[in-house]
Design a protein around this nucleic acid. Structure first.
Lengths: 225, 225
DNA sequence: ACCTGAACACCGTTCAAGT
DNA sequence: ACCTGAACACCGTTCAAGT
C-alpha cells in the first residue's frame, strides 16, 4: 500500500528473476512479470539495472557462476534444488584458510559445485553462451584454476590450455546432460535395419553423475604433465 | 506485386532466418522481420511452420546440425562464412561409398565439420541447449559415431559413454571459443597482487583450431580401450 | 493451398512526474 | 533516491477472409 521505497535491491531482483526462470523458463521472464513478483511496477527495476534486461542477464550469469569452490564435503549431495539467498557475502576477502587438499581434489570440488549450480538453473543456460561474468568472484575462480595447475606443474600456455579444457568440459557435459532430456524415443521401425548400431545401443542409460566424474577424472589425468 | 503464391518454402524460410540470426543476432529474428526479408506477410510463415517460432527454431537446429561427416579433405579450411543453400539434398540415401578411413579419422572429420557449422552460426548456439534434432540426419550421425566406436572395440555402455563424451567435447569447446570473445581485459590494478597466477598468464592466447584438435586428439586417445 | 489484414494480448524501454 | 503512470514502438499468434 505504501507507494514508495518497496525495499527493492539488486539481490532481491536477481533471486526473484531466477525463481521465475527456474519455474517457468527463460522466455517467461519479462520485466512486467518480474515486477509483479516483486510487488512493484516493472519500471522500478530499471532503477537498479539502468541498462535494462541485458544487465540483469549478466548479473544472473555472475550470480550462478559464483560457486565457492571451497567446502570439501558439500559437493557430494545430488540435491534437486538448493535454497536461494545464502551463498553470497561471507568469506569474501583474500584470507581464506588456504586449502590443504591436492590440486586435483580442489578442481574436482569446483567442477562438481559448478555443475550443480548449472543444473539447478538449467533454464538459464542459454545466457551463458555469449556472456562471461566479469566480477571479482570470476577472477577468484580463474586464480584457483591457475594456482592448481601451477601446483600440478603446468605453467604458461599449458595452464591456459588446461583451464580452457576444464571449463569446456563442465559446460559441455552439463549441456549434454540437459539437452532434450525427454527425446520421444524414435520410431523403432525407422531404426530397424538401417541403423543397426544405434538400435543395439538404444535404451542404455548411464548415471549422469557417475559419467561426469568419470569424464572429469579422465580429463584431469590427461592434463597431468 | 502478385498477391498470392510468393514461392515460400520451409527451406527458404530457414535460410533467411539464419541470415538474420547471423547478421543481427537471435533476438532480432522476429516473425515480422523474417516476413519482410522474404517479401511476405509475417503470418504466411505459419503456413509452413504451423506451430510457430518454436518449430522454426527446431528446424534451424536440425539444419545446422546436418553436417555431412563425409568428404575427408573439406574439414581443413578455416573459412569465415560458408555459402548457404547448397548443403542439403544430394547423397541422402543409405548407399554412400562406405568410408575406408580409420574410425578416429572419421570422427575427427565429423568433429571439425560440426565445430565449423556451430562457429559459422554462433549466434544460434543458445537454441542448441534445450533442443536436439530428431531427424534422419541426426540418426545417421549417431550411427556414424556408434559404428566408429564399435570399430575401435567399444560396445554397449562404453560406446554410449564415448559418444556422449565426443558430443560434449565439441559443444563445450565451441562455447568456450565463442564465450565473451572480447572481454574488456580487466583492470590490471585489481589483478596486481591478489591474483598472481592470473596476472602472470594474462595475455596468453592460443590458436583456437589448434587447441580444438589437440583436445580432440587427447579425448580420442583416452577413449581407445 | 497459400497468403493477407486486422485484431488481441502482450513485450522492453523512455520520460515526465510524484514522494 | 526510489518508484509510478502513461506512452511508444514493437512482439507472437489467432482468425476470418481473400484468391
Amino acid at each position: 500500500m505504501t507507494r514508495n521505497n518497496a525495499g527493492l535491491s539488486a539481490d532481491r531482483i536477481i533471486t526473484e528473476a531466477l525463481r521465475i526462470i527456474d519455474g517457468q523458463g527463460l522466455r517467461r521472464l519479462t520485466m512486467r512479470r518480474l515486477g509483479d513478483a516483486l510487488d512493484v511496477e516493472a519500471m522500478a527495476i530499471y532503477h537498479h539495472f539502468p541498462l535494462g534486461k541485458e544487465q540483469l542477464f549478466e548479473a544472473i550469469v555472475a550470480h550462478i557462476s559464483d560457486v565457492s569452490g571451497g567446502s570439501p564435503g558439500d559437493a557430494d549431495a545430488e540435491s534437486g534444488e538448493v535454497g536461494p539467498g545464502g551463498e553470497d557475502g561471507a568469506a569474501g576477502g583474500a584470507g581464506e584458510p588456504s586449502d590443504s587438499r591436492s590440486w586435483d581434489e580442489r578442481l574436482r570440488t569446483w567442477a562438481l559445485d559448478y555443475r550443480r549450480a548449472l543444473l539447478d538453473h538449467a533454464q538459464a543456460l542459454p545466457l551463458f553462451i555469449h556472456r562471461r561474468p566479469d566480477t571479482e568472484a570470476a577472477l577468484r575462480t580463474r586464480e584457483l584454476h591457475y594456482a592448481a595447475f601451477a601446483e600440478a606443474g603446468l605453467g604458461g600456455a599449458d595452464a591456459v590450455q588446461a583451464a580452457a579444457a576444464l571449463d569446456s568440459y563442465v559446460t559441455g557435459a552439463v549441456i549434454h546432460e540437459v539437452r532434450a532430456n525427454g527425446l520421444p524415443a524414435r520410431d523403432p521401425a525407422v531404426v530397424d535395419g538401417r541403423f543397426p548400431h544405434t538400435a543395439a545401443l538404444s535404451g542404455i542409460e548411464l548415471d549422469p553423475r557417475r559419467r561426469f566424474t568419470d569424464g572429469l577424472d579422465s580429463l584431469l589425468a590427461s592434463l597431468r604433465p
